[in-house]
Amino acid sequence: MTITSVRTDVAALARDVVKIYGRGETAVRALDGATLSIPAGRFTAVMGPSGSGKSTLMHAMAGLDTVDEGQVLIGDTDLGRLSERQRTLLRRDHVGFVFQSFNLVPTLTAAENIVLPLTLAGRRADQAWIDEIVAMLGLGDRLRHRPAEMSGGQQQRVAVARALAARPRIVFADEPTGNLDSRAGEALLGFLRHAAHELGQTIVMVTHDANAAAYADQVAHFADGRVAGVTRNEEK
């Protein structure tokens, strides 16, 4: 069953995060005291101009990168206390990803790509759940195809399916529609919102596109390495 009730607990939290690239005079404070709370079961967009640090924050919250100061939590887990290997396992088991492009392993079929994190973990896929996602994303007739045989929109939908397959605590999407035409992009955004609202999946999307951000429940505005403000979108 899907969870439809409104949940108020926090899926992930970044508190006073500082990330510095380089040293001495050339040092750049990519994150400068960024604080962001991701509500569970919601679709959150992180918006800002390029270079504002939004992707850096996403990488830190997803356990792809470490921070120099501050704290990052996924659920109750403090990422700062994890080793490289533990962060890899956390990503595998509790985080889903959708990147702008090159989301799929070219040698695997769509179906194999979807269950990749599960097979890497040596876990069995919950077939009913997979079927549900596949049906929702309209990928039923594409499962045996390889990425090269699919359109960009189809590839991104397979990436979304993979992100959802392991029922992660949180899905991060980094400009997921950046390479898609507007129709395919709108469809994908619709799927993401549907996943949040109907399946209760927590989703964080990084984008610089205001139209894309409009699909989210709340939008965090990023500037100069910190969150300048959060706005709530009204239900469409």
Partner: peptide, 16 residues
């Protein structure tokens, strides 16, 4: 590189 990065991102361990 991209493919390997992706595999690592979605949870392939260094040992794997």
């Amino acid at each position: 590189t991209r493919e390997l990065g992706l595999l690592r991102a979605v949870g392939m361990t260094g040992a794997q």
